[in-house]
Every structure is written in C-alpha cells, then in structure tokens.
Design a protein around this nucleic acid. Structure first.
Lengths: 192, 192
DNA sequence: AAAGTAGATTGCCCTCGGTCAATAAACCGT
DNA sequence: ACGGTTTATTGACCGAGGGCAATCTACTTT
C-alpha cells in the first residue's frame, strides 16, 4: 500500500502531517510482476524506489553471466547511487523475484522534496548511511572470510533467503560458484 | 588547514557565509602522527573526521591478523557509520600512514549542525551516498572479478597507492595474500 | 654504523574452489 | 499431464592461490 512508505520512514525520522502528504504525492506506484525488470543494466537509474512488498534481485552481467550482487526484500529503498547521482548508465539490473509493489520517485522530484522538508532530507541521509553500512560490512566479509565462512554466515544471518532465491544466486552473492556452494553446504551439514 | 574543510565541502554544496562559520567552529583539529591511531577497534567511533591531509589505513583484526580494508587519502571524510550511528564498538581501527591533519566532529555536535543548516544536512547525505557508491563498487569487484583482475584494476585505478602503502596492505584490500599479490604482479609484468 | 625489525620475493607443496560434464530433480508454460 | 527448461547435486580433474619457510632487502632505532 501507498501508506507503507509513511510507516517505514517513521522508523527513522519524525514526519509531520505535511511531510506525509508530500511523500504520498511524490512517489509513483509501480507494480513489477515476477521476473520483470524495474531497471535494466545500461539504462540510467533515474529513480529511488521504495519496495513496499516483494523481492528484488540486483545483478550485473560479467562475461555474459549474471552476477547477483544483492537481494532486497521489502520494505526497503533501492537505487544505484552512481547512476542516480551522476546520471550515467547503471551497471545493474533490478529484477523482481516475486510480484513487487514499488513506489518510485525521480531525481528532480526527490530534490524538490528535499528542499521542502528537513525531515525528508534527513531521511535521505539516513537511507544512504544504511546502504553505506551494509555494503561496507559486505566488503569486509568478502576480504576477511573464506568461502566456507561466508556460507556459514549467510546461513546464520539471512536464512529466509533460502526460501526466496535459488542457490545459484546466493552463491554469487558471496562470491563463489553454485557448485562450490552446494558442496560446502553438504560438507557443513556432515561435519559440525 | 582548517579552511580546507570549506574548500572541500564547496565541491558538493553551496555554503553560505554562516554555514562556513558553523563548520569552522564545529570541527576540532586533531593531529595524528604517522603510525598513531585515530580510532582503535573496540572503541566507539564517536566522530566523523575530515582528513585534510595525510593517509589513513582502515583495518580489522581477524584471527590476530590485521586486515586492511580501506585506504583514505585526504582530503576526504571518514567514519564507521555502524559505530557512529548505533553507538556500538567499532570493528575498525584508523591508523595514520603519514602524518595526518584531521578535523573531528562528535555525534551530538554534528546533529546540532544538521539542524542549523539544510546545506549541511545535504552535505551529510552526499557524503553518505559517496561512501555507499564506493563500497557497492568494491563489493561488486570482489564477487565478480578474479584475484588477477583485481590486481590489474588496482594498478590501473589507484597507482598512487603503490607509493603510499606496503604491498601487504594492498593485498588485503583486494582480498588476497601478500605472497599471491607479489606473484600475480610479476606474472602480469612478464606476460603482456 | 650496527643491530634489529618489517616488507618483498621466491620455491615448494597442498588444498580448496573452479571448471566441465553427467545425472537427477524441480519448475514452468502450454 | 506433458515436454522443455532451469536448477541442484555429484564426480573427476585441474590450477590458481594459500600456507610455510628461506632469503634478501629496506627501514627504524639506538
């Protein structure tokens, strides 16, 4: 629902009635059917999307292969900041893995919105900080842990993903092949 | 110099005379001698630091080993958002590799500053977006490229680092051992 | 200048994960 | 329910990178 944006954002900042009004008007509802795309690599990512419900897979194509680099489960915000801010083609595609209810706002509308309310500007900052935090943590995991540790960490920290997405995508996410992912899993379940 | 903050920030937002005044007052100068620490892992990172000049190595300790996960060359801002925002112990140490001129602001002072000026709130958002962008790119490189590609990319994109930091640190940064780093480099210089 | 410490390089061996291929199972569209 | 496609698992083989140790060099420290 449209009002989910309000509910979600209220977790981070205090919104006035007017702020809520602005949010409601600025975000355009966009339904994305399972397997369809919210963004295709090479296009400009001219929006920030609030994913009210559903699941979005972020992937990049390398040597003809899709590399899944993130899985976003609603409610959350997604965008490609590099493309969004610099107005350049995106390196990523956003594909729905489940029917997804999204609400999008364009660059210009967003900046206008930022100028109208400090709470919203603050919200934008907090969202960016959260992305920064998450991907810093992800980089650290990738350079400091071995594949087997990363599998264990994934099992422990995001078990819900195993119902939502295929193992080949999960394997990409932690930088290994689907075959290794399968082998490591079976190795883990035998040993412990 | 203190005024470097103003110069740097002006690249991102328009600052009024008053904004400049506020910035000057809010940031406390902190000199960090080569090899000394701006932050030690386990402490709370209660500040955002503007690095006016110098070089800071970010590292995390894993199994008793230092894992260098970022190198920040001034001018730039650094912090650990996870620790800073949630007020929890940091997973990182910040060590100066060169004598470093930093200017720090505390959490409370920063939030006060955000309330005083939308330009500064905006600045905070843009800094966070930049971190998000950089570390998203870093994660992608780690999951989509092989060690040899990452070495080549590092050589191409940040050659200046080879003068500033030891190879063992650069090796960590791209998730390989110093020995492999050395071997891959010599392999590269022979082949093409 | 000497001694001691840290970094870089190289060799050897080994392991883990990558690659390729075959099979089996689950999923999909019609 | 059917045939076709995608996915998961397993096997066999291989090779890049890891681990360890020895050597050599460069840098600090006194």
């Amino acid at each position: 629902m449209h009002s989910d944006i309000i509910k979600y954002c209220s977790n981070f900042v205090e919104l006035t009635t007017q702020d809520k009004e602005i949010l409601n008007q600025a975000f355009q509802p966009t339904f994305v059917q399972r397997k369809k795309f919210l963004l295709k690599e090479g296009e400009k990512c001219g929006f920030i999307a609030f994913i009210a419900s559903g699941v979005i897979r972020h992937f990049h194509i390398k040597d003809g292969e899709e590399i899944t680099c993130d899985i976003s489960v609603g409610p959350c915000f997604i965008t490609d900041f590099a493309s969004f801010n610099k107005n350049i083609p995106s390196k990523f595609s956003f594909q729905a893995l489940k029917d997804t209810e999204a609400f999008c706002i364009s660059y210009d509308d967003l900046n206008q919105l930022y100028n109208q309310s400090t709470a919203l500007e603050q919200l934008g900052r907090i969202m960016a900080e959260n992305v920064a935090e998450r991907s810093t943590e992800m980089s650290l995991a990738l350079i400091s842990q071995k594949p087997e540790e990363r599998v264990q960490h994934l099992l422990a920290s995001r078990p819900e993903l195993f119902q939502l997405v295929s193992q080949r995508h999960l394997a990409n996410l932690i930088g290994i092949t689907p075959e290794s992912f399968s082998r490591i899993r079976s190795r883990i379940s035998k040993k412990p």
